[in-house]
Design a protein around this nucleic acid. Sequence first.
DNA 1: TACTTTTCTGCAAGCGCTTACAGAAACATA
DNA 2: TATGTTTCTGTAAGCGCTTGCAGAAAAGTA
Lengths: 362, 362
Amino acid sequence: MKKRMVQANSNGGSAHSQSAPAGGPQLPSSVTIMDVAREAGVSYATVSRVVNNKEYVKQDTREKVMQAITRLGYVANQQARSLAGGKSYVVGLLVRDLGSSYMGAIVSGVDDELSTAQYNLMLYTTHRRKTNERIYVNTLIQGMADGLLLILPRNPEAYLDTLNQSRFPYVLIDHQGLGDQVPAVGSKNWDGAYAATKYLIELGHRRIGFITGALELGAAIDRLAGYKAALIDHQLPIDPALIIEGTFFQPEGYSGARTLLNLEQRPTAIFASNDVMAFGVMEAVRDCGLRIPADISVLGFDDIDQASHVYPPLTTVRQPMQEMGRLAVKMLLERIKDPDRPVERVELPTTLIIRQSCQPPT
Amino acid sequence: MKKRMVQANSNGGSAHSQSAPAGGPQLPSSVTIMDVAREAGVSYATVSRVVNNKEYVKQDTREKVMQAITRLGYVANQQARSLAGGKSYVVGLLVRDLGSSYMGAIVSGVDDELSTAQYNLMLYTTHRRKTNERIYVNTLIQGMADGLLLILPRNPEAYLDTLNQSRFPYVLIDHQGLGDQVPAVGSKNWDGAYAATKYLIELGHRRIGFITGALELGAAIDRLAGYKAALIDHQLPIDPALIIEGTFFQPEGYSGARTLLNLEQRPTAIFASNDVMAFGVMEAVRDCGLRIPADISVLGFDDIDQASHVYPPLTTVRQPMQEMGRLAVKMLLERIKDPDRPVERVELPTTLIIRQSCQPPT
DNA sequence: TACTTTTCTGCAAGCGCTTACAGAAACATA
DNA sequence: TATGTTTCTGTAAGCGCTTGCAGAAAAGTA
């Protein structure tokens, strides 16, 4: 099956290479820009201009081309576009794992925003082989993607060096305070934790248990700090016995709560650094034969979907995760347009969502 | 061997073109195949052969090239590769949403397997604008991806027609019985539900509540059928009052269980069609002041991570979700290699995971 | 009318790679 | 030595597109 037909084409005019071989197993007959050009009776450069919304195309011509495009169902080949033009309309997303509501919400925001910008999403999970960061980054930089989003990276330094050096656009989501020179979007963890703790205090609680997140993450540190600050501001002691270290997973909420509930002077409220751990807390409370919120108030952080679905609905600090994803994309696209724009770090506000898992101590 | 064909290179020896532009704003200095060729002193075609592991390259040459590649840190530009060679090494993944352990596990399997095959993952979520299916599919077909994976598609017909027509490779994951002509991987839902129900019966339960999944999904139908079959096989009546319709979400587990528990003759066990609903059931049971498993046994389906983390750990039917993802990728890659291979439909076995949420009725 | 400026459009040169083809080198056979 | 064979390597033709350049057409100005 040879498809050669080089310059041995003597018919002076437009070559008109027929493109529908018609017979035999045929892959998608890929309508190309040439087909559209022929259909519309213009050059393929003009078609390209129309497709890319460039100026200097007569309205008339533009319409002719548009019609040809819809008639033929033409979709530009991204690979070729990217190769020729330098933009791939792909954004890479580096993520540890999916499967949590937290990630799901962020990715959903990312995805939404990306789709309205006509971008595609290339997903990379870092639980794969550890040593691959460099490859990833290189692959991405080599034209695979126009920019990179990193959600909650644990050791971003590995990537960031390379990224910075090559001036490759990126944005961190739910970052962990890496100085000011990193474009990032996060939320006001400190504020959220402060507000939540304050709420409990104002409800009348004096002994408030706290279960931390993974303290290598800035978010976890900030939440702990917000909790402590609220206590101090209300002249309440910081009792180390009431602070249990966790890493954001449910079992630690459970065990942490059991520890707290076994204290001689047990707390009347427990504030977990995320909702998932709060669920663990709720289980533990119940298993101790206590009721929520009658005996113990429980408070979470994040406001994942499930938080409003459990019983009693969980009072929690909402982090606008979708919004974070959206905003990160917006920032990234800006940086793609102009890699030299000043580095921005945005922290979205959190909201205390009051449901039914807290009440004044009895 | 005496003459190097590299013209325009006056210094006879190894060219050693310094590659660090060093000055001025420089985009990633993209090492290309040409640079490697120069560095290794061969033609770029040879480099291409080495990179693609083609035969007919002298061992010697191969090594020289390899060295040059590592020395320069060359990474092939996928766009160009794809454009020239027809393969993009990208697989599209069509998904409704992420953020559930269920999806997370499948995607994780997909991702793992893809990464060992050196493929990239392009993510498309269908919660985006509804009418975009055609665009997606066209984009993908236009060379963006080599194949497509669809997880739990609700109305796949929309895509499948186009896909089939263009003979574009795809595989469904956790399909819903669309006849035999669709390549798919799922799990033995019927068997799993049968085994679980049988287990409860053998424990001594006679009244077993069942909460269904979304019945437009084959998986949900099969689970219900397995439940019924087990009852029948054990001469137990099928009591419609014990069957509550749900759609796989937690609140339905909760409300469903409340309904069941309010029955005059309430069940001694509740079997939810997935773990998430089982969590809802557990909450409801507790809120009715009953204990699990002492008063009511609870059984789930899927075995998501959380199932072993709740208290008491949930007895459930494990669906090998990671494995499903993996297998789907393997099948897809086969189909990419040979689109004409016969259609396969695989159902992976399920396993009853006995934990502590079930015991004989008291 | 002649000339300048402003749109519009086509030509052609790649983007970085794969691969058919042909030529060279190495080895084997007549 | 002449002539295959087989292995290896280079040349060149694109893949489908963007974009600089220049010429053509339209519009404005003198």
